[in-house]
Simulated scan of single mutants.
Amino acid sequence: MKALVAQSYGPLEDLVVTEMPKPVPGPGQILVRTEASAVNAADAVLVTGVMKDVLPVQHPFTPGVDISGIVEAVGEGVTRFVVGDPVLAWLGLPSGALAEYVLVEDAPSVAIRPVGLDAAHAAALATGGLTASSLVNAAKVTEGETVLVIGAAGGVGSYVVQLAKQAGATVLATGRAEDAAYLKRLAADEVLDYKSVNIPEETRRRVPGGVDVVIDVAHVSPDLAEAAVAVKSGGRVIYVLGGPPPALDRGVSATYAGAEAPEGRLGELAAQAADGRLRVEVSANYPFASARQALVDFTTQHVRGKITVTF
């Protein structure tokens, strides 16, 4: 089979499409024939080795944590899936989805792809949707609250906006001026152009006293406490990256959250995407032969929603 492979740590430009052995599912595994994958920030981090002391990988290494495809074979003990089932999955780390065939553990992080959700949009849902759901749940967003989403136009933020709105919140979303109409379509109540205003100050101007919750997907400031300026006393700040939460004043709490796949969550997100309750934005799609370019463009361009790769 063909796979996108890094032979060692290095720039994304060194990735190559090459032949690799076709895997065989073991107990509790399914083999998926890939129809689509999606590009994530983790792919670049793992390929380049920026965080190799924390997240080392073995080479040759195939990136990609999101997959949508067809079950090709099932291992011993697998009863939820049969050959021919359309599925979507979040692989977690290490990854491997940018290959023609991928081993997937039979776990809550894999679900049947419903009718009405095509392969590319299913792949674009897995990591982003699961991460956003975890962030909104960690924030304990309730009806009537105000939520500021920092990094709202991207592959996680776009889902955070929608899920926070589903929870009954008034949503302020940050983006570029050209993202305003898109963010409004996602159900943002107000859009803040981070290129032209100071986000905490502008938030305070629009919501005197501060918002109830900030969900910071972007971490655009090296000072993680800066986002807390936009929150009212006793409010909450949720960050998407790991690490020790910053010490905040005024009774503001800080929490980290990331992608999690409790039982049934991925299937529910897929059902919402299939029937239109959850919008999945695919800003660009690349053929597998151009998968390396997809990763390069993801890291060098302003991406709205997700970039996908189809096989």
Rank of each mutant, 00 (worst) to 15 (best):
G116C: 10
E76R: 13
L248E: 04
K2Q: 15
A138L: 10
E145H: 09
E76P: 08
V147M: 05
P56C: 06
G96P: 04
V161R: 06
A294G: 05
A169H: 00
F288S: 02
D118M: 09
E226V: 15
V217E: 01
V102S: 01
R176K: 14
L15K: 03
Y9W: 07
K232Q: 12
H121E: 13
E190K: 12
T34A: 12
G175L: 02
K195H: 14
A153I: 05
A132W: 01
D14T: 15
S253V: 13
K140F: 12
G251T: 04
P108I: 07
V147E: 02
S283V: 01
A122H: 01
L135R: 05
P56W: 02
A173V: 03
V252R: 01
N285E: 15
R236M: 08
L46Q: 10
G96M: 07
A257T: 03
A228P: 04
V104L: 06
T79R: 13
P245R: 06
K52M: 05
I112S: 10
Q29P: 07
G28E: 09
A138S: 14
V82Q: 15
E72Q: 13
T62H: 00
G243F: 10
P21S: 12
A111L: 05
P27C: 10
A119M: 08
D193V: 06
L12M: 11
T142D: 12
D189M: 07
T131N: 07
L266D: 00
E226I: 12
G96H: 07
G64K: 02
H302R: 13
V54I: 15
F288C: 06
S95H: 12
G234E: 11
D66V: 07
A273D: 06
E145M: 15
F61C: 03
V136N: 00
L15C: 08
E143Y: 11
L15I: 06
V147K: 02
V110Q: 01
V191Y: 02
L46D: 04
D43V: 08
A132D: 05
P86T: 10
Q29F: 10
A44T: 13
T142L: 13
E145F: 06
G129S: 09
D43S: 06
A261R: 00
G267P: 02
G129V: 05
A36Y: 02
I150H: 02
I199S: 01
D118G: 13
G267L: 07
G276T: 03
D216Q: 07
A111V: 00
F288N: 01
V16E: 15
T174Y: 03
S37Q: 01
V231P: 00
R33G: 11
T127M: 15
I150P: 00
A274T: 06
G84K: 11
Q166N: 12
N40I: 05
V220T: 14
A36M: 02
A289W: 00
A38Q: 04
T310D: 11
